[in-house]
């Protein structure tokens, strides 16, 4: 994992989305919103694409103080060798989803956001 990222950055557009999310008063810091975005992208099974210029926001120590992010990514992608690179790309994907969510709902609607996550076949069968 030597090639892994030491910092996490976001694109300009995603930076604006982070600001909007914090301004809505639901997050005390942008890092909480960024991690939510990551979690959303993982839950949707988004395939992260490495692209465009990003501005560094956090070093990985700040971004993932207790290692939960790394652990989550490795749970979903056990073969992954560069979990923070993956994390950075997932944050970008997730923030695009959150930007669309804000656009259509005007605010962060947690219930809608969680209900939009595709259910497993088992859950579908139950519910």
């Amino acid at each position: 994992m030597t090639d892994d990222r030491q910092t996490i950055g976001v694109s300009e557009k995603s930076g604006s989305t982070l600001e909007a999310l914090v301004d809505a008063g639901v997050f005390s810091q942008q890092v909480d919103a960024a991690k939510l975005a990551l979690s959303v992208a993982l839950a949707h099974g988004d395939e992260p694409v490495e692209s465009q210029e990003r501005t560094t926001k956090w070093n990985v120590g700040t971004f993932d103080q207790n290692g939960d992010v790394r652990e989550l990514i490795l749970c979903f992608k056990p073969e992954c060798q560069t979990p923070y690179r993956e994390a950075e790309n997932l944050v970008e994907c997730g923030l695009r989803r959150l930007a669309e969510h804000l656009e259509s709902h005007g605010q962060l609607d947690l219930e809608v956001l969680l209900n939009e996550i595709p259910k497993s076949q088992e859950e579908d069968a139950q519910g």
């Binding site: 909480d32 939510l36 979690s39 993982l42 859950e123």
Partner: peptide, 12 residues
């Protein structure tokens, strides 16, 4: 939300 960021991934 400091821990709630995990909720979307919970069901998976």
């Amino acid at each position: 939300m400091k821990v709630g960021w995990l909720w979307p991934a919970m069901s998976k």
